[in-house]
Design a protein around this nucleic acid. Structure first.
Length: 197
DNA sequence: TGAGTGATTGACT
DNA sequence: GTCAATCACTCAT
């Protein structure tokens, strides 16, 4: 039933990075694998801009951050802290290194599969964090630099709901802490952290 | 609160 | 080529 929603068009990702970060809230992130399909509604994002000290791409292009400089609407998946993958969506025209980090989902489909991968049945712990959602959806380095408008990893459009959005400071970074580039759905219980001090 | 984990990177031979 | 510092996190305590 989820499959009837169309993927977001490549045009969607040509908005400014901050606009994409907000517009992605309420959309559906879906990953089809041999084991089955898992999907969730995006409830929390962060924007990373080219002149932002916390952005991987703020200095120069390297083999790791190259996807951020690539075509908008493609994924940028990277490995960090020795154990976690984080999933980003590249934005901005080619040559400009900007992206939106997906931080949390509300699980919608494939709950059993997610529970198996996450080794927990608590729906609040399935996708409420950038490392958690990649594990729940089995997103890894194979999903780096893929087109999110076609293929097995997609973001689907959902009917607009005009849900209230909170804008606040980002989490878990050292530099650029004061920038208001984190967005989440005010009413969602699935975000990684409600307040940020 | 802090231990665990490993790819990536930049500064060095 | 080597080496050490860094890192947008999670989980158990």
């Amino acid at each position: 039933m989820i499959e009837r929603y169309p993927p977001l068009s490549p045009e969607f990702y040509k908005q400014s990075t901050v606009d994409v970060a907000q517009a992605l809230l309420g959309k559906l992130l879906l990953h089809r694998t041999a084991e089955g399909t898992a999907a969730g509604i995006i409830v929390e994002t962060e924007a990373y801009l080219w002149d932002d000290p916390a952005c991987h791409a703020s200095k120069k292009m390297t083999p790791r951050n190259a996807p951020m400089f690539g075509h908008p609407g493609f994924s940028y998946v990277y490995f960090t802290y020795g154990m976690h993958y984080c999933m980003n969506v590249a934005t901005a025209p080619e040559g400009i290194g900007e992206a939106v980090l997906i931080r949390a989902l509300e699980p919608v489909e494939g709950l059993d599969l997610m529970s198996l991968r996450r080794r927990t049945t608590d729906p609040l712990l399935l996708c409420s964090g950038p490392g958690r959602l990649t594990q729940a959806l089995a997103i890894g380095k194979d999903q780096n630099r893929v087109n999110l408008s076609s293929g097995n990893l997609q973001i689907l459009d959902m009917p607009a709901k005009n849900l209230p959005i909170i804008r606040t400071t980002r989490i878990g970074i050292r530099l650029g802490k004061d920038l208001l580039l984190r967005f989440y759905l005010a009413n969602s219980i699935y975000i990684s952290r409600r307040l940020n001090f």
